[in-house]
Structure formats: structure tokens, C-alpha cells
């Protein structure tokens, strides 16, 4: 029993550390993008503290860029709210996908602020194999690393973005590749049968094509739906096969 308690007690720091470790690849993507945001916000006329505050409380990349651009262009503010929330509407699918791993602990309520695209993707891949009592510690540390790197990157961009991008242009060019590399690592384990491989390939290729056509904001929900449709189109045939084999073996 004492062994068991010491194992469980040791599991919490391990989960915190694992969360930090798992979120590290995000830094390569978050910091350069946040630096760009900080720089653009300053160039659009926002102050340093305002820019940092935007990243702290909105904390959603694409919609922040849109917010700054629309406000600087003098767009109607009601339209700014609608457009940015429309871009973020895909987030409604994230928590339900993780629900079975989260449980009804009230501490998840503030932690939902950290549920970005990338933190969702990380959680969706890592939480299923994790012990129930480690998930909150793991998520909290991963989400905090991501959030602080976003805020820190924004601050760097707002204060010294112009000088940084002039001196080291490769920072902006190379480090954001961490994002597709990380997403690839997160989807690969799913490609363990024909049905999932086809659904994932469809979603990825369609998202790429739609973005190239100039519609980056609808690309993700549209492509995900197409992937799901491919999944369901292939599913009946496989289910029938499975039930036939089950009958044959019985």
C-alpha cells in the first residue's frame, strides 16, 4: 500500500514534466508566429501592453491577426466580433472530443482557456494512454507552456520584432515548420487501417487545397467533414466484413 501511494505521489511530478516535454515542440511554432503577431499589431498602431493583452486573453492565432487587421482598417466593430468568433467556431468540437478523458472536476473550467488547436491535438493523442489522475497535471503544464510561449513571443515581437526579423530572417521562415511536423506526428499513429488512413489523407489534402485556393478559415472544418464522410463511406463495408468474420469464427 505504501509502495502504491509513493508510486501515485511520484506520478504527479512525472505528469507535469511529461506535459512540459510534450509541449516543447510547440515552442518552435508558437514563438515565431507570436513574434509576427506582436510586430504586426505594433505596426497596425496597437501599444505594447495592448498587444500582449490581446494574446493573453483572446489566445487564438488566426482570429488575433484578423482582429488587428480589421480594427486597423476601421471595420465595424460588430463585424470584427462576428468574424473572429466564426474563425474560432471550430473550437466547439475540441472539448467534447476529450470529454471522456477529462472528468467532471471543476478545475477544468478555467483550464479550457488553454484549449487551442495544438493543445487539443496533443491532448487527443496523449490522454488516452494516460492514467486518469495524471491528465490534469499533464494538461495544465502543457497548456501553460503553450500559453506562456505565445504571450512571451508576442512580447518579443512587440518590443523587438522588427530588429529580430531583420537580423535573423530564418527564425520566421524555418521554425514555424515545427507545426506541420508536429501535426504529422500526431496523425500518423491513427493511420493504422485503410479506413482511417483514407479519412485522414482526404482531410489533409483537401485542407491543403482549400487553403491554397485562398480560404484558410473554412479549410479546417470543411476538410474535417470531408474526412468524416470518407470514413463513414468506407465503414459499412468493413463492419459487414467484420460481422461476417465473427459469424464465421463462431
Amino acid at each position: 500500500m505504501s509502495n502504491m501511494s509513493s508510486t501515485r505521489a511520484g506520478a504527479q511530478p512525472a505528469a507535469w514534466l511529461q506535459g512540459i516535454k510534450d509541449a516543447l515542440p510547440l515552442l518552435g511554432a508558437y514563438i515565431p508566429i507570436a513574434i509576427s503577431f506582436g510586430l504586426i499589431a505594433i505596426q497596425s498602431g496597437f501599444g505594447v501592453l495592448e498587444t500582449i493583452l490581446i494574446s493573453t486573453i483572446i489566445y487564438a492565432g488566426a482570429s488575433q491577426f484578423l482582429f488587428v487587421a480589421m480594427v486597423a482598417a476601421g471595420s465595424p466593430l460588430w463585424l470584427v466580433v462576428i468574424m473572429t468568433l466564426l474563425i474560432n467556431a471550430r473550437h466547439v468540437l475540441y472539448a467534447p472530443n476529450l470529454a471522456v478523458y477529462l472528468g467532471n472536476d471543476k478545475r477544468w473550467i478555467p483550464l479550457m482557456h488553454g484549449l487551442t488547436d495544438q493543445v487539443f491535438a496533443l491532448s487527443h493523442s496523449r490522454m488516452p494512454a494516460m492514467a486518469k489522475d495524471q491528465r490534469m497535471a499533464w494538461y495544465t503544464s502543457a497548456a501553460l507552456v503553450a500559453w506562456f510561449s505565445w504571450i512571451g513571443g508576442t512580447a518579443i515581437g512587440a518590443i523587438a520584432g522588427e530588429e529580430l526579423t531583420q537580423r535573423w530572417p530564418l527564425i520566421n521562415d524555418v521554425l514555424p515548420f515545427a507545426l506541420p511536423a508536429l501535426f504529422l506526428v500526431l496523425v500518423l499513429p491513427r493511420c493504422n487501417n485503410r479506413m482511417w488512413t483514407a479519412a485522414i489523407a482526404t482531410a489533409a489534402v483537401l485542407a491543403l487545397v482549400v487553403k491554397l485556393c485562398g480560404y484558410p478559415n473554412v479549410a479546417i472544418p470543411l476538410a474535417a467533414m470531408a474526412g468524416a464522410m470518407v470514413f463513414y463511406a468506407l465503414k459499412p463495408a468493413r463492419s459487414a466484413q467484420a460481422s461476417q468474420s465473427a459469424q464465421a469464427s463462431s
Partner: peptide
């Protein structure tokens, strides 16, 4: 997983 694949694509 479809959303994650789409994020990869974009």
C-alpha cells in the same frame, strides 16, 4: 482526428 489532419493540411 479529422480536425487534426485538416490542421496538418493547412
Amino acid at each position: 482526428p479529422g480536425m487534426i489532419a485538416a490542421m496538418f493540411g493547412t
